[in-house]
């Protein structure tokens, strides 16, 4: 059910559509970036932990 858009429906729809697409893209990009950084950090920390526990044995 579309609202009443008067004489210039194209312009109104276009401005809402552009905003929707751009903000949607922004949200997707920011969410992707957060997940990506999080997984990178987890990987890095796991590697560090592994190396630390591996390094501890011969030292002790």
């Amino acid at each position: 059910m579309l609202p009443d858009l008067g004489n210039h429906p194209g312009f109104i729809l276009a401005s809402y559509a552009v905003s929707l697409v751009l903000i949607g893209g922004l949200i997707a990009w920011i969410r992707y970036d957060f997940r990506h950084q999080k997984s990178l950090l987890a990987e890095l920390e796991a590697r560090r932990l592994r190396r630390r526990s591996a390094a501890k044995d011969p030292k002790a």
Binding site: D4, L5, G6, N7, H8, P9, I12, S15, Y16, S19
Partner: peptide
């Protein structure tokens, strides 16, 4: 007319 509906997103931006 109805183009005022664009203002509802334009002004917040």
């Amino acid at each position: 007319g109805a183009t005022v509906k664009i203002m509802y997103i334009h002004v917040p931006f």
